[in-house]
Design a protein around this nucleic acid. Structure first.
Lengths: 334, 334
DNA sequence: ATGAAAGCGCTAACAA
DNA sequence: TTGTTAGCGCTTTCAT
């Protein structure tokens, strides 16, 4: 910047003013532009960030980048944030608490203006230090009890209830579920939705029909094999996230079982994958785009409302899922 | 930092030295640590970056985050770079040249130490300015003619030839191909590999068997429908990337066609998806982990070799693909 | 509308 | 080993 000041004979303040939309005389504007061209000048955001104490960057911490649900949300959020002049730093913590803590600390040292997080640590310890800075945090997908921040969630109990209801209406009474890890709130809710629905429809709860896996493809394969082996009379299975759904389909495939003749299936998320299954898979789909929009919107609101709001009014948005019909649920009513 | 200097009665340099692994007397080390704790101090990487003119951050620019091939590579690269103390800023440019240019410029202003890029602009215009800074660039997956940087590629011609050879050995002579966009080097190579293989095996080339789509799921659906309609006697199809493979499977599904009885198929990438198909899909798989390792390794080498190397010795690594057998290729020899 | 000067939080060269 | 000091590139009063 000094160079361009020298070249144009102007003061530093004028150049700075030029870059920040201030008033600069037409003549000087031209001169500055010429100098920029000649010197290949490019603003140094590092220096600007130091001075203004704002990096116009938001950090995103997620358990797995290599996960369609996360990837879809991030893609959309990034678009929106970029549209408002904010950059995004994505950190994938490999579903590891320690790496998650490191990611948040790293972003904090990089002085991001806010963090959007799909938490692995359900206690939220990793966010404590960052929250003390007064900068905003938005949680997505999983809640943390008593966290001082906004959240965007999905009605997971309802999602599971809808799936069980669909099975019930088609005559199923022996319905298995491949649930997620005990400590993740979405997994708790989906399994409790299953339990409540069974109760509601008078379906006897059998613990052998409930299995917990780890939200991975391999987990889905294992879960399906286990359920099938333990419950020869089971007629339907509900799988509670996308990776495990893919795993369950692989398992059925490798066991040579026919869907829906031998087993009815309702999966989770990823419409395109559902379409690629034969027959087309019926799924419960989460509104990824809306989740992203909502989260980005909340973050921008905090960021742009100059001063921090009163810390009491943290809001929690709960979105609805939707069943997308395929042909993987057999009507066995006689 | 000043606060902790005041609190401990030490000089700034001592504190700085403490943070940068210098020698600090045990007594003072203790005092500093106590002060850090008390003040919740955290290094300001923005300031450090300004001073040292090195952010220990590498930028990654890719066409789509929401793409398994990209996501797998990024996940692995991030891990490696993090292990060497480098952070990663990922920019998804939505397969848009303008956004790609903006992403590179953004990273440049953020003063990243290097950029890893899977280019959309095959001319490489977007990198020109950044390359002038003398900082390293590593290209992955797609080459750019005459670019002053390292590249990690895959032997795409060989990949296509292997697929066609497999079809040929199983008696197929009417083999369709769903190719990618004309301007992308991988797409060119995969189609030219197909042409060369046909020549080699004496299979007459028919232009109606070749269709070009855009590497998306919808493109795959369209391509498959088009090929099937135009070539009633076609017995096999080779699909040249993962998204289009999924699309082709969807198309086959929705057309109610049996694989491999009515049509043999070889897809591309994503073993898990191939396993989920029924029957299991035969695919050509790219070595994503190796690509990531190689790219991260090249970047680290440039970054850590203090001074820039002689600009002549840019290297290009070419990795091999592998066929993973499924049951989607029918032997029609009589 | 423009210029001079202070300072953001840190590192590094030099001196003690 | 520790302290002093200058300065990284920018923004921002406060004068002019």
């Amino acid at each position: 910047m000094k160079d361009i000041a020298r070249k144009t004979g102007l003061g530093l303040a004028t150049i700075s003013s030029y870059f920040n939309g201030g008033n600069v005389r037409e003549k000087n504007r031209k001169k500055i532009e010429a100098a920029i061209e000649e010197l290949h000048y490019e603003v140094n955001e590092v220096a600007r960030g130091l001075k203004t104490n704002a990096t116009r960057t938001v950090g995103v911490v997620i358990p797995e980048l290599n996960n369609v649900f996360c990837a879809e949300i991030i893609t959309e959020m990034e678009d929106i944030l970029r549209g408002h002049g904010y950059a995004t730093i994505v950190c994938d913590c490999r579903t590891d608490r320690k790496l998650e803590q490191e990611a948040v600390d790293f972003l904090s040292r990089k002085r991001v203006d806010g963090i959007i997080n799909m938490p692995v640590d359900t206690e939220g310890c990793h966010l404590k230090k960052f929250l003390k800075t007064g900068k905003p945090v938005v949680l997505i997908d999983r809640k943390i009890q008593g966290a001082a921040c906004d959240s965007v969630l999905v009605d997971n109990e309802k999602a599971a209830e809808d799936a069980i209801e669909l099975f019930f209406r088609n005559g199923h009474r022996k319905i298995g579920i491949i649930g997620g890890p005990e400590e993740i709130s979405t997994a708790q809710e989906r399994v409790s939705g299953y339990r409540k629905a069974c109760e509601k429809y008078g379906i006897p709860l059998e613990e052998t029909l409930i299995c917990r896996e780890d939200y991975t493809i391999q987990g889905g394969v294992r879960g399906l094999e286990r359920l099938v082996k333990r419950n020869p009379d089971m007629t339907a299975v509900f799988v509670t996230n996308y990776e495990m759904t893919m795993g369950a389909v692989i398992g059925l495939n490798e066991l040579g079982m026919q869907v829906p003749k031998e087993l009815s299936v309702i999966g989770f998320d990823n419409l395109q994958f559902a379409r690629a299954c034969s027959p087309k898979l019926t799924i419960v789909a989460q509104p990824t785009v809306e989740i992203a929009r909502e989260a980005a919107g909340m973050m921008l609101k905090r960021l742009e409302s100059g001063t921090e709001d009163s810390p009491s009014e943290y809001c929690t948005e709960k979105l609805s899922t939707e069943i997308i019909m395929g042909r993987s649920v057999l009507d066995i009513r006689d």
